[in-house]
Nucleic acid binder design. Sequence first.
DNA 1: CTGACAATTGGTAGCGCTACCATTCCTTGC
DNA 2: GCAAGGAATGGTAGCGCTACCAATTGTCAG
Lengths: 341, 341
Amino acid sequence: MKPRSRRGGGRPTIADVARKAGVGAITVSRALREPDRVSPELRAQITKAVEALGYVPDRNARALASARADVIGVLVPSLTNNVFAEVVRGIYDGLGDTHLQIQLGNTHYSGLEEERLLQVFLSQKPSALIVSGIDQTPTARALLESAGCPIVQIMEIGPDPVDMMIGFSHFDGGKAVTRHMIDAGYRKIGFIGARMDPRSQRRLAGYRAAVEEAGMFDVRLITTTTSPSSVSLGRELFRDALAKVPTLDAVFCNNDDLALGVLFECNRAALSVPAKIGIAGFNDLDMMHVAFPSITSVRTPRYEIGRQAIAMARAAISGDHPKQRVIDTGFELQARESTAR
Amino acid sequence: MKPRSRRGGGRPTIADVARKAGVGAITVSRALREPDRVSPELRAQITKAVEALGYVPDRNARALASARADVIGVLVPSLTNNVFAEVVRGIYDGLGDTHLQIQLGNTHYSGLEEERLLQVFLSQKPSALIVSGIDQTPTARALLESAGCPIVQIMEIGPDPVDMMIGFSHFDGGKAVTRHMIDAGYRKIGFIGARMDPRSQRRLAGYRAAVEEAGMFDVRLITTTTSPSSVSLGRELFRDALAKVPTLDAVFCNNDDLALGVLFECNRAALSVPAKIGIAGFNDLDMMHVAFPSITSVRTPRYEIGRQAIAMARAAISGDHPKQRVIDTGFELQARESTAR
DNA sequence: CTGACAATTGGTAGCGCTACCATTCCTTGC
DNA sequence: GCAAGGAATGGTAGCGCTACCAATTGTCAG
């Protein structure tokens, strides 16, 4: 039976290249993937044929035949959150000019959605997976453990990596800023938090540890919501906090958006910063040092985490798993005008 | 010869499901893709078998056999730019619970990189492509035209769509804010722009048209850079602008980040806003209405554009191309305190 | 000079799925 | 009663590529 008319739309296949170059199809395949294993003469011929025909390998066929797709799955909880946007940028930049592709998934901070996406991703047999955080559901964890490819957990570190891990301690970060505010002389330090995902929870725990050590803990100082974070939400939460505890003299915000909202509200209500109210954020977005007054924050190496996560994944894919499986990037307290009492 | 041991890692295949359900493989395939064409009894049996085995179809095999991947390629110039982050969020949300997947590509505002990514994407035979803007290189345009799948150009509209288009006129947006500032009584209105991609260029052209009509044009009022936008850059450009034209009494910023930087600098330099300096941004991020004073901006329907782009793509994939190929979403001027002289 | 072994190349047989066509069994209409 | 047409199901033959093994040639130690 004659071959059916090309379903693929007539793009040249590896067989076309092989014919043109006068070699076997498998040699073309090898020349493309492991050039060292083909003699220079044939390699040159093949390269010429590839260019003449405008041949581009079919990724789907390749993935099917080799049971491995040149895809790295990346799961993040949010795409609009600046922090993850930068992680993703780092990931793309870390790719260099490999043939690898990124498959992004947005879990919307949902464990169930993470499980679903993991299923979808695994159905492509990815070369590696990068997931955010260390709080996977048991099902998700099991999927990861049986994935049969390198796994990198990012943004946070913990005692029990699935495979590899890179991030820092949110608890320590929260504790460090809070201590800084205590040292600056603030006595009624509130905590304002949005979203309250696991990492925010641990920042809160760090805050709590610091104020408890100083004998300044009071539940009414804590104002949180599960709504997504935004600048306007920062303003609202600050109003609530002030209504609950009128003697409030400082706030540590879960993240920089909220801190900015607090600053604007202080400006509007003529509460001077840092004299009357101290403000600290988390992540240290660019705007924090530009704000007037500039805002204290905790610098987190988001872009670097993305880059390194890919570097680790690539190393593991090419066979040499880094000996150091858990990397603590640390963080950096940036003390600024907003807490300089 | 006996079948080689499973390369794929032992996941069940469609043949396993077929055996378990006591039907042909092709019937399983149909039950999964076009349930209506299989009798209810068999469908139930098959569903049971699928669940019992935990069968998940292999996307690569499916794509190879049908010469079509369930993938929509999306090309955006930046992932950290808030605006595109929201477009992407809209795109993901517009997916609903289809089996479609998104393949994101970041062109870094480069036409060459766009061409390269287009090649990569096309090698997967995507179901549709979404690209940003209307300024593709001739090569990219040719690739799109011969892609053989629906194409949606987003964020901007123009006279000559490759296929479909959704966005708004950046020229009109720039002209509208500028006119608003003129009407508010400002006389030395500067333009501050970062990145200066084609859309920024057209906002600048809108600005220019408005000031020229009012007889207020002066090249020295324009301060731009090709560096990527940021809050701190807004501050720097504003300083430069003020140094060039000390009588400057207002600035229209290319985008909201810059506007925020300008506001902070005015605060720091004790230039009262809006009395001494008027400020307007573009895009209307959440923080604009929270800022103190709140900042005038142009609201752009980024999230909606993402959603609708997917809706258009899905319609076209299922065969009914929308009759209206170009959708102008418009924009909305948000006049606020920062220009209320 | 011979056998062992590496380097290079090619053939065969799928990877897991679906397009296409064939088959079977019903309905219809006349 | 019978041909024509439709609905449901299945078989066969690939999609374009690579894993695996075989074949060929050249190289070198003994």
